[in-house]
Design a protein around this nucleic acid. Structure first.
Lengths: 126, 126
DNA sequence: TATTAATTACGAAGATTTTCGTAGTTGAGG
DNA sequence: CCTCAACTACGAAAATCTTCGTAATTAATA
């Protein structure tokens, strides 16, 4: 059975930073986060501590501080969030969700080709 | 510029009911909501009142009570929620979001065909 | 008219999330 | 050994969301 992953908006923000940059000190996470919005150092710290308790992060001692890393896979969380939105807003219909997603007009030719290839593969597997 | 729509989890739950069933009394909304989870009458009422203040619902007097309807289009809210998840979890990449969505394996042949048609149309429009 | 049932309005408690201040710890350098 | 800077741990305030109890209102009816 698949584990139900979840993360709040702030947690997701930090996870994105960890996924992108790998292992980071609290200081560094806070610096990167500060490029986007105003946020105090202890705010970032507290969030990382909470995420550590929840199992969203791991950490290892380094000097007098810690180095944090993401403990869950980006893809796994994406899948969970997608799944949740699918149920809550699209009544579970992958089709209508996909239609809306592609209908935004923000999809490049390359991406469309890629998606078409996936569809080909999926149809083969019948 | 497009209005940023948002709704909490509970609000979305009620909007789904309103979208599906049309115009409803508080009593009726509560009954339908109760089929899914335990919820007191005044809880439903309060939510509808809040949603009315926020502009998510409209209402009209009917006898001594009100009849509520959704004030926003299902598609518009879906678009907003999709857009938000796209940015927060997929760094804005429609391609990777679509790939994950279709990769769940829950997509029917019919839906795949429908999506392929949309892609054809999108590629034509270049 | 008095009672009852249905409904609304209001407020507040509880839960979760977000933010940050303060105190304590530790290690480096004088 | 003392001081300073960097860091952690802790707790709590602030903000948002969820839930429901209570009082007031209104309409039907006994």
């Amino acid at each position: 059975m698949k584990k139900e992953l979840k993360a709040t908006e702030s947690e997701l923000e930090i996870l994105q930073i960890l996924w992108t940059h790998g292992e980071l000190s609290v200081r560094r996470v806070n610096e990167l986060q500060s490029e986007i919005k105003n946020v105090g150092y202890t705010t970032t710290l507290k969030l990382l501590q909470i995420m550590f308790e929840k199992g969203l992060c791991t950490r290892q001692a380094e000097g007098r501080g810690h180095i944090y890393s993401a403990a869950i896979k980006k893809q796994d969380l994406q899948q969970s969030l997608l799944s949740k939105l699918l149920d809550s807003a699209f009544s579970g219909s992958v089709g209508s969700m996909a239609m809306q997603l592609l209908g935004t007009g923000k999809t490049s030719k390359e991406e469309l080709k890629q998606i078409r290839n996936l569809i080909d593969k999926l149809e083969e597997d019948e």
